[in-house]
Design a protein around this nucleic acid. Structure first.
Lengths: 338, 338
DNA sequence: CGGTTTATGTCAAGCGTTGTCATATGCAGG
DNA sequence: CCTGCATATGACAACGCTTGACATAAACCG
C-alpha cells in the first residue's frame, strides 16, 4: 500500500498552504467556507488522518482521555466504559480504558506512566480509584485535569458526579418498612468503596426514623460479589430469628442471597424479601427479579466525561430511582417454633 | 510543576549521548553494563518516561495494541479485555480497547481512523468483529497484523484462537440425552456470530447420533440476550407437547428460560432442564445454577494476544469443558392431559 | 479613501525519539 | 604489529504536526 498521506499532501492537493490545513484541523476561525470545503475534500480523497503522535509532540492537545478503573463488577464497568466512550465518540476523542488495582503498591507509578507516555488531556476516575491516594497525588503532581465518579473524600480536589447513596439506601429501606418488614438485614459493601458507608448510613437512618432498633447481628460484611452475598445469607438464615428481608448493598450480593434461599427450598419472595442496589442487568436476570435502586452508571460516566471536557469545576448530583420488581412481598406471619 | 524530563535530560545527567539512552530504552545489545546502570539511575532520578508519541513519530513501533470488539455480553467482554490486558501488561505494552458496532456503515472507516491515528502495532479482533468484512479489508489494506478470536470465516487471513463450538454443543446435547431427554429444544445465537451455526450443528449431530428426530418447532431464534431467551421459552412452553430440556446457546438466554419457567411456577429442574453455553458469572448467579459449557474466554484472549506479539501464523484450539451444576434433572414422566 | 477585519501564505523552530552512518575502543588471529 | 571483527558510543537528520512571527491581500466599514 501507498504510504499514509500527511498534511503536506493535503495542502498540495487542495492548493493551499500547510498552515491553512492546520487551521481547519484545529477549527481556527478565519478560514473561508469554500476553502474549508476544498480541504475537507482533499482530506477525504487522500484518506488523511492527522497523526495523534505528531500532534502531541508539537505540544497540542492529544485528544485522548483516560478512564482509570479497578474492575469489580463487569456490569458496572461495562456501563461506565460505555458512558465515557459514548461521550468521547461524540467529540471525536479517543478513550483509553485503563484497569488498575488500587491496592497495588505501584498504582501511582502506573498512572504516572500512563500520563507520561500517552499525554492524555484528562482522566476520569471511577470508584474506588476515586479515593486512591497514590493516584490522586500523581494526578495532582502532573497537573492533569480529572473528574471523579462518586468520590467519597477530598471533594474539593476535583469536579465530580455522584448520586445520593445515603438517600437511596434510606429510600429502599423505607420501602421495605412500608411493606411491613421490621427485621431487615443489611449486607455491607466493599470497604474500599466509600459509598458502602453511605449506604449503611441510609439504612440506619431509615430504621431510626421508623423507630426500629438497630441490631448488629443483622449486619454482615460483604465485598460486592456473589460469594460474599451467599456467605451473608447463610449467616442470616442460620439465626434463631432470621430477618424477613435482606437489603444487599449491590445486586451481585443480592443474587447470592437469592441463591442460598433457593437452595434451602424457600418460597421467594413470600418467605424472604430481598432487595439490591445498582440495577445491573443481573437484577432482571435472577429470579425473582430484583427490586433495587437504579444507579445511573451510564449517565454518571457520560456526565463525568462532559465535565472533564468542559473544564468547569462542578459537583453534579444525578438522581437515583427505586425500581420495583418482584423480589419483595409482605413478611409472612412468623410461625411459632414447634 | 517542573516539565517532564526528556531523553536529553537523562543523557546529560548520565553523561552519555542521547543515542545511548535510546539504546538502553530499546534493550539494544552493545551497551556496557556500567553505562546501563548509570543511565537507569538517571532515569529513575528524573522520573523519566519515554513519550510514546515521539517514538511513533520517529518510525519505531508504538508498543500499543488495539482490541476491537462489539460488546454484547458485558461479562464476555470483561473476560476478553482482561485476557488481552493481562498479556499486554506482562509485556509492558499499552492496550487500546475499542468498541465498534459491526453493522455501522462506517466500521471500516472507524478502524482506519484508529490505526491511522494511534499507529498501533497490531490488533486483536473478537467475535463478531472477526467476521466483519469492512474491518478485515481495512486491516489488510493497511497491512496491520491482526489475530482473531473465534473467527467463522476466512481462516487463511490471520492467526486465530478458537474452541470447538460444534463439539461443545454436541457434548452438552449428548449430556442431556444421556440423562434421558429426548425432546430437547435449542435457542440459536445471534446470526452475526458464526459460532451460532456451529453450535446448532453440534446440537443436530448429537441428536442424529442418538437417533432422535430433529423437530424444527423445537428451534427458536435468539440473539444472545436475556429477552430473546424469554421469548423462546414462551414459545416452547406454549407448545402442545413442550420440551423437557432446553439448550440455550449462551447463558444469558438460558437465564431467560429460567425466568419464564419460574414465572410459570414450574419446579426447576424437575419440570424443565436448562443448559447454557459460555459459563459466564451469570451461570453461577441464577437459580438453579446452570450446567453449561465453559468457554475459556480469558485464555482465548490471552493466547490471541501472545500470538499477535509473537508474529507467528497459527490456528490454536483451546479446550472447552462441560461444567455440571444443578439445572439438569431427568425428565419427569409426562402427565397425561386431564 | 484610510483603517480595520478577515483570510491566507512563508518561514523557521520545536516537540522527543530512533535510524543511519560514522567513529572509537578492545581483542583475537595471522 | 597489523588486520578484521565485535563491541560500544556519538552526531545528525528525519518523522508529521503546531505555532508564532510576519507578510500580504482581499473584503468590509464608515
Amino acid at each position: 500500500m501507498s504510504d499514509r498521506a500527511n498534511i503536506r499532501d493535503v495542502a498540495a492537493r487542495a492548493g493551499v498552504s500547510v498552515k491553512t490545513v492546520s487551521r481547519v484541523l484545529n477549527r481556527h476561525p478565519y478560514v473561508r467556507e469554500t476553502t474549508r470545503q476544498k480541504i475537507d475534500e482533499a482530506m477525504r480523497a487522500l484518506d488523511f488522518r492527522p497523526s495523534i503522535a505528531a500532534r502531541i509532540l508539537s505540544g497540542a492537545k492529544s485528544n485522548q482521555l483516560a478512564l482509570i478503573y479497578d474492575n469489580h463488577s463487569p456490569y458496572y464497568m461495562h456501563q461506565v466504559q460505555t458512558g465515557c466512550w459514548q461521550r468521547c465518540h461524540e467529540e471525536g476523542i479517543r478513550l483509553l480504558a485503563q484497569p488498575v488495582i488500587v491496592t497495588d503498591a505501584d498504582v501511582g507509578e502506573q498512572v504516572r506512566g500512563l500520563i507520561g507516555e500517552t499525554h492524555v488531556d484528562g482522566v476520569v476516575l471511577s470508584s474506588p480509584v476515586t479515593d486512591c491516594d497514590p493516584v490522586l497525588r500523581a494526578l495532582e503532581a502532573l497537573g492533569t485535569p480529572f473528574v471523579r465518579i462518586s468520590p467519597g473524600t477530598n471533594h474539593a480536589m476535583s469536579s465530580s458526579v455522584f448520586m445520593d447513596d445515603g438517600q437511596a439506601a434510606d429510600d429502599i429501606t423505607t420501602y421495605l418498612i412500608n411493606r411491613g418488614h421490621r427485621r431487615i438485614a443489611f449486607i455491607k459493601g466493599h470497604p474500599d468503596h466509600m459509598a458502602s458507608d453511605d449506604r449503611l448510613f441510609g439504612y440506619r437512618r431509615a430504621l431510626d426514623r421508623a423507630g426500629i432498633r438497630f441490631e448488629p447481628q443483622l449486619i454482615a460484611e460483604g465485598s460486592f460479589d456473589f460469594d460474599s452475598g451467599c456467605a451473608a445469607a447463610e449467616l442470616f438464615l442460620g439465626l434463631a430469628s432470621p430477618p424477613t428481608a435482606v437489603f444487599a448493598s449491590n445486586d451481585d450480593m443480592a443474587a447470592g442471597v437469592l441463591a442460598v434461599a433457593h437452595g434451602r427450598g424457600m418460597d421467594l419472595p413470600a418467605e424472604l424479601s430481598v432487595v439490591g442496589f445498582d440495577d445491573t442487568t443481573l437484577a432482571r436476570t435472577v429470579w425473582p427479579p430484583l427490586t433495587t435502586i437504579h444507579q445511573p452508571m451510564f449517565d454518571l460516566a457520560y456526565t463525568a466525561t462532559s465535565l472533564l471536557l468542559s473544564g468547569e469545576f462542578e459537583h453534579r448530583r444525578l438522581d437515583h430511582r427505586l425500581v420495583e420488581r418482584a423480589s419483595v412481598a409482605p413478611p409472612r406471619q412468623r410461625q411459632e417454633n414447634p
